[in-house]
Design a protein around this nucleic acid. Sequence first.
DNA 1: CCTAAGATTAAAGTTAACTTTAAGGTCAAG
DNA 2: CTTGACCTTAAAGTTAACTTTAATCTTAGG
Lengths: 139, 139
Amino acid sequence: MKIGELARESGLAPSRIRYYERQGLIGAIDRGLNGYRQYARGTRQLLEMIVVAQQAGFSLDEIRNLLPPHDQADRGRDKLLGALNRKVVDIETLQQRLSATRAGLKAVIARIEALPPGGDCFENAEDVLASMREQSKAG
Amino acid sequence: MKIGELARESGLAPSRIRYYERQGLIGAIDRGLNGYRQYARGTRQLLEMIVVAQQAGFSLDEIRNLLPPHDQADRGRDKLLGALNRKVVDIETLQQRLSATRAGLKAVIARIEALPPGGDCFENAEDVLASMREQSKAG
DNA sequence: CCTAAGATTAAAGTTAACTTTAAGGTCAAG
DNA sequence: CTTGACCTTAAAGTTAACTTTAATCTTAGG
């Protein structure tokens, strides 16, 4: 599979795929006699994992450390499992942060709705935000 | 309150606060006779809201549109409520995306753990990721 | 054979979100 | 009245994550 096809299938620009390669995210790629990159079937899934992780707020640098080494297959399996499990924990952390944020926002909204118009919103939001901070420490 | 004090209280660098002002995130600030910025009490909360929104994955550009105009107080109240409610929706969307991601990861982990060592991880992850994509469309 | 589509590289350009720098003005303390 | 901490600005520098450009090579089709 050449880069153009992989690009169409994954929805990523070829330049982006080459960029990820330069950044060490997808390892060394097989080359045909002409020098063209030849991708294995798994690469599309790998790219998707990268994109998913990015959407969850990970930098490419973090993702590189999260992904298994591209060479050794079996030592990679254990590292992959460890990385995936840590990633789940990271996502759970993020979820808790979002829950706290959402709860805080809802509290702020309730306060503002209960107020007579004309007051200083931020003045009244102070303790709400304080409790948000507490909550996020506890979470 | 001068910028240094606000910086200490908020944990943001003064340069960052001035940058937010240039970007229109905190509006025009009162100046003393000496030209120093004089911040109102609410500014610390405003900065915190900005940071929280950033951590939830919003760009400064999105945040600018989310925040109420800095001038009119009462028309601002309604816009603020609208913005906050939309933000809650945004957070809920993100939470759903994260849940889908987490579920997908857990499924991938279960698959890999069930495999005999030596196989091609990505090969087997294919339909798992397919179902992840379904889930995120539905969510 | 010619052409168009698609592959290659290195290097430069872009955008967001800041920080750093340079050159200065202000203010409280000794 | 000078020193040091803090403020001001405009402009330049930084980092991440890409994209664009330029110059060249390969391959498939009429």
